[in-house]
Design a protein around this nucleic acid. Structure first.
Length: 580
RNA sequence: GCGCCUGUAGCUCAGUUGGAUAGAGUGUUGGCCUCCGGAGCCAAAGGUCACAGGUUCGAAUCCUGUCAGGCGCGCCA
C-alpha cells in the first residue's frame, strides 16, 4: 500500500520536473512514514521540505504544487498540507479492505518483500570453539544470527548460514591433551593437570569414551610429556607439553583424542542449537582449509601484494595500511600460521563461492579483530564494505535481583542448555530478540521464567491463542466459517478495528527495516503493538455476538491478525500456540 | 593512553537513518467481566533525551569537546 502511495507521489514529482518547477537532475527519494499522531493521517511525507530549496519555493507552496499534480487513487481519501510543509495522506477504507484481503490471500507469505533482490548473503554466527558447551553469551549470538537469517530470507535475500568450526590450531592441541590427561587418570595414573588445560567435567566424559573403547592403549608415562625445566603453569610450558604429547602418542594417537573430543563436542553443540531452533546450512571445518591447501594458496596470493613482509622470522600483514592499530602476524616465527591466516582463507573462500555480502556475528570482545580481517580482504581485491561484522554484546544474567557471576576460565558459566531448561526456548529466544545486538542485555531469569502477566512472551502468544479460542467457540456455536471468505471489510467502522487493520498493514515495512538495518528487534516491538491492538479490540467489541455479515468481517480481521502474529513469531523462532 | 560500544521516565528499554506535542513494558495510583480466555483492557502520574557548544526551516538522532560505564589493544582465539 505504502509503495503505491510512493509511486503516486513520484509521478507528481515527475510532472513538476516536466514543468521545470523541480530541477530535472535533482535526485528525488520520496519517503513516507507512519505519523505518531492520528490527526496527521495514515502516511506522511517530507518531500516538499527536502525539495523546497532546490525548487526555490516555500515548502508549503511546493507541497501545494505537488498535490495539484497528483493523480487520483482509490486508496486515498484526502491529502493535506500541515506544519512547515508536510503532506499528510489519509487512506480510504478501500485500502484497508485491500490489505486485509492480501493478508488472508498470502498467508504465511504475507510480509515477504524483495529489498534483498536475491543477493547472496552468507551469515556466519556462533562459531564457538568446540572446546566445551555453549554458554548464554553464545546463545545470544545464536538467537540473533538465526533470526537475522530468517528475516533476511523473508526480505528477499538468498541467505546461507554457517558455523565455522575451529578444529585446528593450538586450542585443539590443548583440548586433546586435556582429554588424554583425564584418560591417564582413568587408567589409574596421577598426572599433574595444568590449570590452563580445559577443566570442565565434559572432558572426563570424552576421556571415558576413549578409555572404554581403547582400554589402556594410549597409556604412556607422564614423564615423557613434561618438558624438563619449565614451569608447568606457563603458556610456553603448555606448548612444550602438547608438542611432547603429540610426538609421544604419534599422529594416530593424537588424532584419536582430538577426533573423539571433536565428535562429541560438535555433536553436542549441534543438538543444543537444534533444540534452540537454530540450524545451519553448513558446518565449515577450519582444518579443511589446510587439507585443501587453501590457507597456503591465499597467503601466497597475499604475498604478491605490497601488504606482506617478513620481520623477526615471522610473516606480517601490513594492517596499518587499512586503519588497524598495528601490523599483524600471519605466520609465526615457528612456521605455524596464526588464527588470522585461516580466517583470511575462510573469508576469501566465502567470496569465491559467490556470496556478495558476508555478515559475521561476533562477540563484542572481538571488535579489535575487525580491521585486520577487513584489511586482508581489501588487500586481496575485495570491497571491504561487503564484509559486515555485527557485534553482539554480552548478556548479564540476573536471578533474584542478583547478578549471576560467570567466568569462562574456571569453567563456571551458565550454559545455553541450562538456560533453555530453566526458562524454555520460547522465552529465551524472545528475550534475546528484544534487544538490538550492540545493547548490553540484562537477562532477568525470574521474569523469563515466570508464567505470569509480567512475562512479555506470553503477552504476544496470548493474543494468538485468544484468536484461536474465538474460532473454537465459533465452531462450537456452529457458525459457518466458509462464508467468511470474501467478507465485506467495509463494515469494519469501529475505531479499534481501523487501528488494528492499520497496524497489520505496517508489517511488510517492519520487515524491510529490520532486514536492511540488521535489526530484528523491531519485530518484537511491533508484535507487542499488534497484540495490544488486538486485546483492546477484543475487550471493546464482541465478535461472535454481532450480526452475521459484520461477524464474518470481524472474524476475518482477527484471522488476519493471527496470521501476522504467527509470521512474526516464526521469524524470531518463537512458537505461536493455539492454546496456553 | 588509543580504539569500539553505550548513556532517553524509579527500573528495563524502543524511537521508522534529520521531522510535527519524545514512546512502550514494569513499578505506583485509580477504574473495567451477567458477555467470545482477566496471561486482558482503560486512565492518571512520572523527562534538563549524561553535559556544553555547533550544523539548519527542524536535532534524542549529524559534527566537536567533556563526563560516566562496558569491552578491546598477543607471534591467543
Amino acid at each position: 500500500m505504502k509503495q503505491q502511495i510512493i509511486e503516486l507521489f513520484e509521478q507528481a514529482v515527475g510532472v513538476l520536473k516536466e514543468e521545470g518547477v523541480i530541477p530535472r537532475r535533482q535526485r528525488v527519494q520520496v519517503r513516507f512514514d507512519h505519523p505518531r499522531q492520528k490527526s496527521h493521517g495514515d502516511l506522511a511525507t517530507n518531500v516538499a521540505l527536502s525539495l523546497a530549496k532546490a525548487a526555490g519555493l516555500q515548502p508549503r507552496e511546493l507541497a501545494q504544487r505537488l498535490i495539484d499534480s497528483l493523480g487520483r487513487s482509490p486508496y486515498v481519501r484526502r491529502v493535506e498540507i500541515a506544519g512547515p510543509g508536510f503532506i499528510n495522506v489519509f487512506l480510504s477504507s478501500l485500502s484497508q479492505s485491500q490489505i486485509l484481503q492480501q493478508i488472508l490471500d498470502r498467508g504465511d507469505n504475507f510480509g515477504r518483500c524483495d529489498v534483498g533482490h536475491g543477493e547472496k548473503v552468507l551469515i556466519e554466527f556462533v562459531s564457538a570453539n568446540p572446546t566445551g558447551p555453549l554458554h548464554v553469551g553464545h546463545g545470544r549470538g545464536a538467537a540473533y544470527g538465526d533470526t537475522l537469517a530468517r528475516v533476511m530470507r523473508f526480505a528477499g535475500y538468498t541467505v546461507n548460514t554457517e558455523y565455522y568450526v575451529n578444529d585446528a590450531g593450538r586450542q585443539m592441541d590443548i583440548l586433546a591433551l586435556s582429554v588424554w590427561l583425564r584418560y591417564l587418570e582413568l587408567c589409574g595414573e596421577e598426572p599433574t593437570f595444568p590449570p590452563n588445560c580445559y577443566q570442565g567435567d565434559y572432558i572426563w566424559d570424552i576421556a571415558a569414551t576413549v578409555h572404554r573403547e581403547d582400554g589402556k592403549k594410549h597409556l604412556y608415562p607422564m614423564a615423557d610429556v613434561i618438558a624438563a625445566g619449565t614451569s608447568p603453569h606457563s603458556e610456553k610450558a603448555l606448548d612444550a607439553m602438547t608438542a611432547d604429547f603429540k610426538s609421544t602418542l604419534g599422529e594416530d594417537g593424537y588424532k584419536r583424542f582430538l577426533q573423539a573430543a571433536l565428535d562429541i563436542l560438535v555433536d553436542d553443540i549441534r543438538s543444543d542449537l537444534r533444540e534452540f531452533r537454530v540450524e545451519f546450512d553448513r558446518w565449515f571445518s577450519e582444518r579443511s582449509l589446510y587439507d585443501s591447501n587453501k590457507v597456503n594458496l591465499t597467503i601466497n596470493k597475499l604475498r604478491q601484494t605490497d601488504y606482506m613482509y617478513e620481520r623477526d622470522g615471522a610473516l606480517w600483514f601490513r594492517a596499518t595500511s587499512f586503519g588497524d592499530e598495528k601490523d599483524r602476524v600471519v605466520v609465526r616465527e615457528s612456521g605455524a600460521p596464526t588464527y588470522l591466516a585461516s580466517d583470511i582463507a575462510y573469508h576469501q573462500d566465502k567470496f569465491d563461492r559467490g556470496f556478495t555480502k558476508l555478515i559475521d556475528v561476533w562477540g563484542a570482545d572481538h571488535h579489535g579483530y575487525i580491521d585486520r580481517v577487513k584489511g586482508t580482504l581489501a588487500a586481496l581485491g575485495n570491497n571491504p564494505d561487503d564484509f559486515i561484522v555485527a557485534l553482539v554484546q554480552f548478556a548479564t544474567l540476573y536471578r533474584g535481583g542478583e547478578k549471576v557471576s560467570m567466568s569462562t576460565r574456571g569453567g563456571e558459566f551458565v550454559t545455553l542448555r541450562e538456560l533453555r531448561q530453566e526458562v524454555g526456548t520460547d522465552a529465551a529466544r524472545f528475550f534475546y530478540a528484544q534487544r538490538k545486538p550492540e545493547q548490553h542485555l540484562d537477562f532477568d531469569l525470574d521474569l523469563a521464567k515466570s508464567q505470569s502477566t509480567d512475562n512479555p512472551v506470553y503477552y504476544v502468544q496470548y493474543a494468538h491463542a485468544r484468536v484461536c479460542s474465538v474460532f473454537r467457540q465459533a465452531k462450537q456455536r456452529k457458525i459457518k466459517l466458509e462464508d467468511d471468505i470474501g467478507s465485506d471489510f467495509g463494515l469494519l467502522k469501529e475505531e479499534a478495528e481501523k487501528e488494528l487493520a492499520n497496524t497489520l498493514a505496517k508489517f511488510p515495512d517492519i520487515i524491510a527495516t529490520a532486514a536492511r538495518n540488521l535489526e530484528p528487534h523491531h519485530i518484537v516491538y511491533y508484535l507487542r503493538d499488534v497484540a495490544n491492538k488486538l486485546h483492546t479490540y477484543y475487550n471493546a467489541h464482541n465478535i461472535l455476538a454481532s450480526e452475521s455479515s459484520l461477524r464474518s468481517a470481524r472474524l476475518n480481521l482477527i484471522r488476519a491478525t493471527k496470521q501476522v502474529i504467527a509470521n512474526g513469531l516464526d521469524l524470531i523462532g518463537v512458537g505461536a500456540p493455539e492454546r496456553m
